[in-house]
């Protein structure tokens, strides 16, 4: 047990997937900022709704659904934009949004990194399904009030919007999530509460999935479980009860962050087309 604990706090190496993810997150932010900062208008708006090169209008499908619950009608622009975005995430995997796009991910990852560095062990016991109840709650609230109530506090859209349109008091929300993840419990927000992540997970796990191809080589070092933001998704593929069980991580809550691939010293995992 002692060796395992030391392991849990070991600093995990930065790999190419982590670098690529940061690159993706900052590029997306950068594209939105290139307009207001350098008058280079590739994308206008924010992740809630945007226009690419004055032609392709995109809308966040979660927002579109909230709006549908609130007012029971949507414009064609919104419907098409939301379907395009939803279609994209159905292909690549819903929670790719969380690991590759969402700006809150940078905060929670940083908090998680510091947690291990500072050896903070506190743990809150929350059910991983709470987010789905919260998702239902946000839609019910939209329906009964006729307003996008969740968007008053949604840290994901608020953070992205304020980075582009002006910060205001958003840093308070950033600080709250950071401290929550650092001091109270790991993966609280992204792994247990965020209804936006819950919504995107419902779009499925995509056609490219993590494949525990060489699972026989696993030496039970636990590195992947420690680093994974959704550790429950690994077990069925890596340690199946039935040896014929698929080697793909099929759970809809796999965020495709690729951390398991890069921390594994035995190269057990890789991204593969779903078979």
């Amino acid at each position: 047990m002692k060796t395992k604990q030391t392991k849990a706090h070991q600093y995990q190496p930065i790999g190419r997937w982590l670098i690529l993810r940061r690159l993706s997150q900052f590029t997306i932010l950068g594209l939105f900022l290139a307009g207001p900062l350098f008058a280079y208008w590739l994308i206008k708006g924010n992740l809630s709704s945007s226009v690419i090169l004055e032609t392709l209008a995109l809308t966040d499908p979660y927002l579109a659904i909230q709006s549908l619950f609130a007012q029971h009608q949507l414009t064609t622009t919104v419907i098409i934009g939301a379907l395009v975005v939803a279609g994209f995430y159905i292909i690549v995997g819903g929670r790719v949004y969380c690991a590759w796009v969402c700006p809150v991910n940078i905060i929670t990852d940083t908090a998680f990194f510091l947690r291990r560095l500072l050896k903070i062990q506190s743990q809150l016991h929350l059910n991983k399904n709470l987010r789905y109840w919260l998702l239902a709650m946000t839609l019910m609230l939209a329906m009964f009030t006729g307003r996008l109530v969740w968007e008053l506090v949604n840290p994901v859209s608020i953070l992205q919007r304020s980075l582009i349109f002006g910060l205001g008091l958003t840093w308070l929300i950033v600080l709250a999530i950071f401290l929550l993840e650092l001091l109270i419990s790991r993966h609280v927000w992204c792994g247990h509460l965020c209804p936006m992540g819950a919504f995107y997970s419902l779009l499925g796990n995509g056609f490219v999935q993590v494949n525990a191809k060489h699972r026989e080589q696993c030496d039970d070092c636990m590195d992947c479980f420690i680093v994974c933001p959704e550790p429950q998704v690994i077990k069925p593929a890596l340690k199946p009860q039935n040896p014929n069980h698929s080697r793909f991580i099929t759970n809809i809550n796999c965020t495709h962050c690729g951390r398991c691939i890069e921390v594994c010293s035995k190269q057990v995992f890789q991204f593969d087309l779903r078979s």
């Binding site: 924010n46 809630s48 709704s49 966040d60 927002l63 579109a64 939209a142 006729g146 968007e151 859209s157």
Partner: peptide
């Protein structure tokens, strides 16, 4: 209910 706060 309608405004998605996109800033367009």
């Amino acid at each position: 209910a309608r405004c998605v706060r996109c800033g367009l």
